[in-house]
Design a binder for these strands. Sequence first.
DNA 1: ACCTGAACACCGTTCAAGT
DNA 2: ACCTGAACACCGTTCAAGT
Lengths: 216, 216
Amino acid sequence: MARTPRNTLSSDLVVRTALELMEAKGADGFSLRGVAGELGVGPMALYTYFRNKDDLYDAIRDHLMGLMPPPPEGLPWPDQVRSVCRDLRVLMLQHPCLAQLLASRPLSGHETARVAEGLLSVLRSAGFEPEIAARTHTTLFTYVLGATTWEIQMAAEQSDPDSLRRLRASMESLSSRDFPTVIELAPELARTTGGETQFDYGLDLLLAGLTVRTAS
Amino acid sequence: MARTPRNTLSSDLVVRTALELMEAKGADGFSLRGVAGELGVGPMALYTYFRNKDDLYDAIRDHLMGLMPPPPEGLPWPDQVRSVCRDLRVLMLQHPCLAQLLASRPLSGHETARVAEGLLSVLRSAGFEPEIAARTHTTLFTYVLGATTWEIQMAAEQSDPDSLRRLRASMESLSSRDFPTVIELAPELARTTGGETQFDYGLDLLLAGLTVRTAS
DNA sequence: ACCTGAACACCGTTCAAGT
DNA sequence: ACCTGAACACCGTTCAAGT
């Protein structure tokens, strides 16, 4: 908007402006040209600070990961793990674009490494061997990613009355001969597409599985 | 490519052409104009069969879900559940675009309902109450979605030598004072970004958790 | 180093029109 | 119903140039 004079741009300002735009217009409506327009510069000005769009995405992701609190200290390890996973879910809900940024790009950057360090060190301190700690870390991360991505997507869909109407229509077109269980459980399925209870249900299954593993 | 005369188009032909294009050029390179070009028609010809791009996406997803085999019969329920989850992972690996199609759109369509019916009926037959069956279904689905999306994305990244080089560089720039565990477990983390062993590890944690639950 | 401006090769979708 | 053609309002990125 405002004509920005020379040498007032910085990679940090670009990231913050990009993040604002992404949360205002959604990950789909986001564009480099939009960011440039918001900053009052030409689209090519951004290429001074980022090699391309993906490079900017990485920077936004790392910026958001910087908002993750460290794991709580002085608790049993299952509670520490639960806390980290819940914090990541909450951060993703607060910044829905983070889901796409995490899923589509490999983890890199300082803040992202800090979050990984936190969870991995909890697992190592709990006595997990290197390979099991790594496998558990990946399992927990991908669960949070999948569960919360799904939750965000379904919430977005349900806030659009048009697509919600079409979804109901497609549900009702299903024959109760062919799909008796889907029809029977339709209310329960609608209720379990998100929410903290659903998230904790899956997380506690994983933690229960881990507890069994460590006991033997 | 070929000039298609009138009345030779059909929604099924459009879906199959779109799927081919999506697997040849990747989900990013995919476009309605590309599909139309491949069919030798103008872009607007597709709007006779689909309301918009998302509508076509839904049709492609349902087409792919039609390739899912039914759950195996005559096995203990944990083996049935494992089989369905593994089948979905394999299908996603064979058709990488399915990951994005599942994550970005709500589940609708006949074939998608059939897959849900299969897993839900396994859970109900195993004695799960309606709400627990629904929660378990969502948990399993989101785990497979998250784990396999991650696996596909990391495989794509590692096949690009340029981004692999930059990833290694960013790993080596991490100080071993600040990130001792990440550095220590770097080889294990690289090994656990995908593969059947990693997938089964998380899946078995969930199943172990479910077994504990049903026993009590 | 930092930024502009024009250009290239694209998008999805609307609208009016033709058969 | 089925499809065309022109138009609208966009994209990311390259390239040459200016300060």
